[in-house]
């Protein structure tokens, strides 16, 4: 995880270095764009130092929890992120749950009725969603549920209902992927012998499908969900913009537009860290769901312990 984050920061430093544009120009009002003013700003921000020095200095501060100060607003990036991230996190989280809750049953139903009308309809619906641009879907939702029906608010998140439309917007990012993955891994599982065994025991069909087959089909589905969380984080950008939510994604875009390097760096670093943690959680979920993985992990630990013990014994 640490090397990944170091690389992420380095990459952004390099990208900033090679992209044209100067933060001093956005900080200074355009009538004071003189050589010496610009040089003064550069000096203040430490932009004259070589890239490696800046990189190491940034990391040193970041380790202590200081992600720098915004060039434009002069506020602490750490504080701003702490304030804005909860919105983004909630939208991402709710949207992932929505995608799972809709996508998995869709996939299971499609698999159970393979090649029938039901199958085609659910594949069609998921294709429809995947080919719909997020922003357009967001506008449709806002118009229908917000304006026409007046059920849900279209701006802000003063109440929990404000999260529904933005989350739904983001949910379609991975709905189709989850549906398709569920369908294909269920198709594989429902042909397996152990499914027939479960039926032969007298188990009811629902338990056979959801209790036995789906549990076995979960691993690849979890992988798809895990890798799509990054896309969901990205998707919140559209949702936060359209539904005016003061979240992290919006903060980052403002930073990008203003060449506010600390804001962009801090946000990206933070989101990358979150993503790394999510991936670790996904690995843990694998082990919880699948005893085969759990047993393998335990064996590795045991053999590690054994070799260590053997080495110690040899040393003694």
């Amino acid at each position: 995880m640490i090397p990944t984050l170091l690389c992420v920061v380095l990459l952004i430093f390099v990208l900033f270095e090679i992209t044209p544009g100067d933060p001093a120009l956005t900080i200074l009002p355009s009538d004071s764009w003189t050589e010496e003013n610009i040089a003064r700003v550069h000096k203040e921000l430490g932009l004259d130092d070589p890239i490696l020095v800046r990189y190491v200095r940034y990391l040193g501060n970041a380790v202590q929890g200081d992600l720098g100060t915004s060039y434009l607003t002069k506020t602490s990036v750490t504080n701003e992120i702490a304030q804005k991230f909860p919105y983004t996190m909630k939208i991402t989280f709710i949207s992932v749950i929505m995608a799972i809750v809709a996508g998995i049953p869709f996939g299971v139903i499609a698999a159970k009725h393979q090649y029938t009308l039901t199958d085609n309809i659910s594949v069609f619906i998921s294709l429809l969603f995947v080919s719909m641009p997020n922003f357009w879907f967001a506008l449709l939702l806002a118009r229908f549920f917000g304006v026409q029906l007046g059920w849900l608010p279209t701006t802000g998140v003063e109440t929990w209902t404000g999260y529904i439309l933005p989350s739904a917007t983001v949910a379609i990012t991975s709905l189709a992927a989850i549906t398709r993955q569920t369908r294909s891994s269920m198709l594989e599982q429902i042909r397996q012998d152990y499914v027939v065994t479960a039926r032969a025991k007298g188990q009811i069909e629902g338990k056979v499908i959801y209790g036995h087959a789906l549990k076995n089909a979960l691993i690849p589905i979890i992988t798809v969900v895990g890798t799509n969380i990054a896309n969901h984080l990205g998707g919140t950008l559209v949702a936060e913009t359209i539904f005016s939510i003061p979240g992290l994604a919006k903060y980052m875009i403002t930073g990008l537009n203003g060449r506010d390097y600390p804001v962009v760096l801090g946000s990206v670093l933070f989101i990358s860290a979150v993503f790394c943690i999510v991936m670790m959680v996904v690995d843990i979920i694998y082990a919880v769901v699948d005893p085969r993985i759990r047993i393998q992990m335990m064996k590795k630990n045991n053999s590690g312990r054994k070799t260590k013990a053997r080495k110690e014994a040899a040393a003694a």
Binding site: D193, Y194, A200, K201, H212, D290, R292
Partner: peptide
């Protein structure tokens, strides 16, 4: 039929390697 399956009539399957659910004890 469900109440008969596994109770009054049960079946031993051809291939033990695949007849058990791999992720249940």
């Amino acid at each position: 039929v469900r109440s008969i399956r596994g109770d009054k009539i049960s079946m031993i399957f051809q291939d033990p390697m695949t007849a058990l659910n791999p992720i249940e004890t």
